[in-house]
Amino acid sequence: MPGVEDGVGLTALMVAAARAIETHRPDALAGDTYAEHFVRTARVSATWPVRPEEVTGGDANPLWGRLGRYFGLRTRVLDDSLTRSAHAGARQVVLLGAGLDTRAFRLGWPPGLVVYEIDRDGVLKFKQHVLDGLAAVPAATRRPIAVDLRDDWAHALLSRGFDPAVPTAWLAEGLLLYLPPAAERRLIDTVDHLSAEGSTLFFEVKLGPESPEVRAGPIYAATRRQIGVDLPALFDREPRPDSVGHLRDRGWSVTVHTPFDFARRHGRGPLPEPNDALSSNRWMFADKSGTSL
């Protein structure tokens, strides 16, 4: 299907497969009953595993075991963060680079909340095609916006009813890793400009550059071998901007975590290993009300 079967679009299917596998684990941290349908519908991913028993090697599989657990953990942590923001007063949620995210359908949102999903037209059309086939009904008002985040997405967002005077929960999950530094700076500036007091922003970055030993490690090697995705080739390799410092200069309170912090907290998920592809990942939680999350 156009939009999800090449480049970064493939990573959306990879995450969907990981969420599907997580959903069927007896100790699942997150549940997404829609995820396996995306994987099965796209030709390129139709034979990928969507249940734990379909994973060769089980949790020892670097892709569907260790990295899959990472995506399951990330899903749970960000689910909790978004719903906490919504119940604390955010009336809008903006999913930047929404991909195959189904949070508009599967989370418990307070009445009146609006979820905006921003991504490329092909990705959103594929997602809508699958959801229509499932007769899926969103749990909040849902407004997909087909626009490339390298273009004027703020204008597109405002034209669909987004209110910058209302607290918003922003999410950039697995997005900034692929953007060039200038695009990341524009995104952070735009989010700040459009955010009322009480808004929150959750985003993920990868500190870099990664060593040759890490790039040759088991997670990246297994991903290339099993599904033909070369993740390091997709990551932008330019020096990253100091988005945390920029937000703090603008009055945001920001806390920084490793995924291992939450793996230990939940008792599940990946822990550090030598030459670890996850060791440079950081999860950022920013709050414009001045209180750390």
Score class of each variant (00 low, 15 high):
residue 2 P to H: 10
residue 6 D to C: 09
residue 9 G to C: 11
residue 11 T to I: 05
residue 15 V to Q: 05
residue 16 A to D: 01
residue 17 A to R: 01
residue 21 I to N: 02
residue 23 T to F: 11
residue 26 P to V: 06
residue 26 P to S: 03
residue 28 A to E: 01
residue 29 L to Y: 02
residue 29 L to A: 03
residue 31 G to N: 08
residue 35 A to C: 12
residue 37 H to T: 11
residue 37 H to E: 08
residue 38 F to H: 06
residue 41 T to C: 14
residue 41 T to L: 13
residue 46 A to S: 15
residue 47 T to Q: 13
residue 51 R to C: 05
residue 53 E to F: 07
residue 56 T to A: 15
residue 59 D to E: 14
residue 59 D to V: 15
residue 59 D to A: 15
residue 60 A to R: 14
residue 63 L to Q: 06
residue 70 Y to M: 09
residue 71 F to P: 00
residue 74 R to E: 01
residue 83 T to S: 14
residue 83 T to K: 02
residue 92 Q to A: 10
residue 93 V to Q: 07
residue 93 V to W: 02
residue 98 A to E: 07
residue 98 A to Y: 03
residue 98 A to Q: 06
residue 100 L to K: 09
residue 108 G to H: 15
residue 108 G to A: 15
residue 108 G to D: 15
residue 109 W to E: 04
residue 110 P to C: 08
residue 111 P to F: 12
residue 114 V to Q: 04
residue 115 V to F: 03
residue 116 Y to N: 03
residue 118 I to D: 00
residue 119 D to E: 13
residue 119 D to P: 01
residue 119 D to V: 09
residue 121 D to G: 01
residue 122 G to W: 05
residue 125 K to L: 13
residue 127 K to D: 01
residue 128 Q to H: 14
residue 132 D to N: 15
residue 132 D to L: 13
residue 134 L to G: 10
residue 135 A to C: 13
residue 135 A to W: 14
residue 136 A to W: 00
residue 136 A to S: 04
residue 138 P to E: 09
residue 144 P to R: 05
residue 147 V to F: 06
residue 148 D to R: 05
residue 149 L to W: 04
residue 149 L to N: 03
residue 149 L to E: 03
residue 150 R to F: 13
residue 152 D to S: 09
residue 159 S to V: 08
residue 161 G to Q: 10
residue 163 D to S: 10
residue 166 V to K: 05
residue 167 P to C: 02
residue 168 T to E: 08
residue 171 L to P: 00
residue 172 A to W: 04
residue 173 E to M: 07
residue 173 E to G: 03
residue 177 L to R: 02
residue 179 L to C: 03
residue 182 A to K: 07
residue 182 A to Y: 09
residue 189 D to G: 07
residue 190 T to H: 09
residue 191 V to D: 01
residue 192 D to F: 08
residue 192 D to T: 09
residue 192 D to K: 08
residue 193 H to R: 15
residue 193 H to T: 15
residue 195 S to A: 12
residue 196 A to W: 12
residue 198 G to R: 00
residue 199 S to C: 11
residue 202 F to H: 13
residue 202 F to E: 03
residue 205 V to W: 02
residue 208 G to D: 11
residue 212 P to G: 13
residue 213 E to N: 08
residue 217 G to K: 08
residue 221 A to Y: 09
residue 224 R to I: 06
residue 224 R to P: 00
residue 225 R to H: 15
residue 227 I to M: 01
residue 228 G to N: 07
residue 231 L to K: 07
residue 231 L to S: 05
residue 234 L to S: 04
residue 248 R to S: 12
residue 249 D to G: 11
residue 250 R to D: 00
residue 255 T to E: 13
residue 255 T to S: 15
residue 263 A to C: 06
residue 264 R to L: 10
residue 266 H to D: 08
residue 268 R to S: 14
residue 274 P to Y: 15
residue 279 S to H: 05
residue 280 S to I: 09
residue 281 N to H: 15
residue 289 S to L: 03
